[in-house]
Design a protein around this nucleic acid. Structure first.
Lengths: 335, 335
DNA sequence: CTGTTAGCGCTTTCAA
DNA sequence: TTGAAAGCGCTAACAG
């Protein structure tokens, strides 16, 4: 059986309160400090965090509910958030909602019951009703990567509209006018679609219906299938805007399969600087999201809420995502 | 303030024990069951898991200490383990050791203090002394993907030696004799290297020193740099065995950069069926590890240990990893 | 089946 | 600065 604070008392002859105080960084006579330290070493004592949590009502644990734990995107977010939190003594309880709204609701509920101090959420649904559980329990929630329809929660996102707009502007500036887009009905997808539309509108370019592919959710399949359709068209686009990492993977698969060369035959621009662009030949031109900032800003805000509560209204942090030029976009000479 | 079991007592007039019993699935008169259920609904009561844990000494949380959380490999393992555990009411506390032995030790210690019921570990160091913390606390540990020098712990691995042997045999059977290998001093790397050596020995093939590249740790850089060296050789290998996923990424980068075609100019065989082989052209021939089995077997054994303790000696589960043919290996005609 | 009672290991008044 | 005592919310004997 692990040693308890009472064993320390037996060993040192001091009172429980004194020992507890020492454990929490309070002042004790240096004579007693030494006694306690020695007893701790001798008994190999470690405070029982569960007991501590029961009285302080703080578990020093954050719940991270991820839309899809296996994805490279959330892996990188996880990495940065975990580093930030561990540095501050917080643990991270992870739940995978697996792109499913029901599992998302269960995950949130699970976190609440586990008494986490706060929740970091990459949302799947547009308005997880389950978040009311967290609210009722007074557990702060910070949204990452996506915002909800209601703006009742803090969130850290990038300005998807303007990022997609800049990407599309870039294609246009390279002489492209036949630009297809593949997006999804998810938050990031529809935001990025807006940016694409706006850029095209400003340039006065009409978009044939067959150039726009919308899926329910971002996926490799969506990219793959859409690209295959695009390749069948008589009047093929010269460039494609892929609004998501997984979608880009699918697009590239379809391109490879058909033996269509990028950028010679078709230009491509994607999102997220993860593994793909490193190994791809040519290097993909893409919108690079500031992954570390998204994670650490989110974690920072969450810890602040835990400390200070709802003193301030929910804030929306919108980060800048830079366009990184690779070699996947061809500069058309005729412009 | 959240409702407690005492509020339920006040609401129903029943005793605490009865309510607790009901909460834990015991039998109560159906009249009382109804009363309790109604009170729970009315007060929006959720059991406080912290309090529960304090008395039962079970947190229903397991710690997952991952060598590198951002990697695709651990992401997939995480996904399967998390699904398995959640189905059984367990939460997962995640810690990233970030390929660093010190962080690994801290992570294990952290989990122990958080009172996890058990630990799933993808080890970084060959013998994490920090595991003694877990042992002393009576917290079972199951190793995933790698075993340690001491076999004091349960582990779930694949038979790396024979898998690499089969991969090398395959290259030889395709007519290759100049076969290079890129591996690392990590457990999986050195095991796979053994398999390579054994296969080459059996075939009676001498291996020039320049065909063997060893790194401290598996990484994209290792693959990239090693492949660049290989390409500089006067007498280039016709095939390369890359013993790890990240290494393969680096190899492919170097190949792309140099404009060397696979499999026309050089053949390649890798490990792990993750995202890369899906988007790569040609499809990579590889050793596919049974990711889901590794994760769920590991989790299953861990939960069993938690239930039954050290009744049985540590077991080593070695899973079969199949060779999946893609198109990255050229069949040399001259054999 | 039900209720009373005694803790789990710790923090936190409060008085000394 | 220190220590005695109360209690966090729950489970687990035990007796009824």
């Amino acid at each position: 059986m692990a040693a308890t604070i009472k064993d320390i008392r037996a060993e040192t002859g001091l009172g429980l309160a004194t020992i507890s105080k020492f454990l929490n960084g309070g002042n004790v006579r240096s004579e007693n400090r030494q006694k306690i330290e020695e007893a701790i070493r001798k008994l190999d004592y470690h405070p029982n965090e569960t007991a501590r949590s029961l009285v302080t009502k703080r578990t020093r644990t954050i719940g991270f509910v991820v839309n899809n734990i296996a994805s490279n995107f959330s892996g990188v977010l996880l990495q940065h958030a975990s580093a930030y939190l561990h540095d501050r003594g917080y643990g991270m309880m992870i739940c995978d909602s697996n792109l499913d709204e029901k599992q998302e609701a269960e995950s949130i509920r699970f976190c609440v019951e586990k008494q986490v101090d706060g929740i970091l959420l990459i949302p799947v649904s547009k308005d997880p009703s389950s978040l009311s559980f967290a609210e009722k329990g007074g557990i702060p929630v910070v949204l990452l990567d996506r915002e909800l329809e209601s703006d009742a929660f803090d969130c850290v996102i990038i300005d998807n509209v303007s990022a997609a707009e800049r990407a599309t502007d870039y294609l246009i500036s390279c002489g492209h006018r036949k630009i297809a887009v593949i997006y999804s009905g998810e938050y990031t997808g529809s935001e990025r679609f807006k940016g694409y539309m706006e850029s095209m509108r400003r340039a006065g370019i009409d978009i044939p219906d067959q150039y726009m592919f919308a899926g329910r959710t971002h996926s490799t399949e969506l990219g793959y299938n859409s690209m295959k359709e695009l390749l069948k068209l008589e009047d093929r686009p010269t460039a494609v805007l892929s609004t998501n990492y997984e979608v880009s993977l699918g697009v590239i698969m379809a391109l490879n399969e058909a033996g269509v060369k990028c950028p010679q035959d078709i230009s491509l621009i994607g999102f997220d600087e993860l593994i793909l662009p490193m190994v791809m030949n040519p290097r993909l031109t893409l919108v690079a999201q500031p992954m570390e900032d998204i994670a650490s800003e989110g974690a920072r805000i969450l810890l602040q809420r835990i400390e200070e509560g709802k003193k301030y209204p929910p804030q929306k942090v919108s980060l800048y995502a830079a366009l990184k030029e690779g070699e996947s976009v061809r500069k058309l000479s005729k412009l």
